[in-house]
């Protein structure tokens, strides 16, 4: 009986002593943190995607609160509401966030793309790219190992059976993480209102590009000549759409009518790239 009372006494007093030490240390060595940082951080989407240019949501919250030069509209996944909320909290001028979405600029599906060798190494795009730039004859196309899918912070990507990534427009926030991890740079961010997109990244000359992939842009420039607004230009054997002009002026998408390889496609969000024909026969 005595022993148990003794144990109880000793432990209680130890607890009290350490408690006071901790309480004292908490007061004495407290680090002043602006409480606003935590409030702002709570508003951010916590994807930790890095689209803002900071190491993560916490780092951006700290920067936007403490640094007057950091604008409140850098969080792309958060879109308008988050930008507004952050602007309000930090007392900064609210600015618009242009909504954007990821697009895969390649139609080199298993059926379309020709392989140069059989790859047996690590199943990762960056790893496959180390060996002669990947297993496809086209050195610009999607390698299809889904490194973008694995890295998507918002679970907005899946691999199709055709061997190309598919973007879920409902979930894609346009953060651009996939763009940075893709070793081939076939993923790019496009404004949500775009009407057409070039579904190819090959800078090879027409003959070479066509040999490597049935769906390649062969650089014939027919689309450029069709467009009455001059929204399309040719860069390194590849058609490039100027999204600003296209969004603003285009009404009938004439460029889609003449493409011999169907490399320029209407934007139909949520459809597997390269299979638009099967999905929607009526849109042309």
């Amino acid at each position: 009986m005595n022993t148990s009372i003794l144990i109880l006494l000793v432990l209680t007093s130890l607890g009290l002593i350490f408690g006071f030490i901790l309480a004292f240390a908490n007061k004495k060595f407290a680090i002043e943190v602006n409480p606003l940082i935590h409030i702002v951080e709570d508003v951010l989407p916590k994807g930790q995607c890095g689209a803002c240019g900071f190491a993560g949501c916490a780092a951006y919250a700290e920067a936007v609160v403490l640094n007057a030069d950091v604008p409140p509209n850098l969080c792309i996944p958060g879109k308008e509401p988050v930008a507004k909320a952050v602007a309000e909290m930090t007392g900064k001028q609210a600015a618009a966030v242009e909504p954007r979405i990821a697009q895969v600029k390649c139609a080199g599906s298993k059926e379309n793309a020709v392989l140069s060798h059989e790859y047996q190494g690590v199943q990762d795009c960056a790893a496959a790219n180390l060996l002669f730039g990947g297993q496809k004859t086209c050195k610009y196309g999607c390698l299809g190992f889904g490194t973008c899918v694995k890295n998507c912070p918002f679970d907005a990507m899946t691999m199709s059976e055709e061997g190309l990534p598919v973007i879920d427009p409902e979930k894609c926030t346009g953060c651009g993480k996939c763009e940075t991890v893709c070793p081939k740079h076939v993923i790019a961010m496009m404004p949500l209102g775009s009407k057409v997109r070039v579904n190819c990244s090959s800078k090879d000359k027409g003959v070479t590009a066509k040999k490597a992939c049935k769906a390649a842009c062969i650089g014939c420039s027919l689309c450029m000549r069709q467009c009455p607004h001059g929204a399309i230009e040719m860069q390194n054997n590849l058609a490039v759409v100027n999204p600003a002009i296209c969004q603003e002026k285009c009404t009938e998408a004439l460029c889609l009518t003449k493409c011999p390889t169907k490399a320029i496609r209407p934007v139909i969000l949520g459809v597997v790239p390269g299979t638009e024909d099967k999905a929607c026969a009526g849109c042309q």
Partner: peptide, 13 residues
């Protein structure tokens, strides 16, 4: 395991 390939990948990254 493709250990050397992972190592080459890590070095490249």
């Amino acid at each position: 395991r493709n250990i050397v390939h992972y190592i080459k990948l890590s070095k490249a990254q």
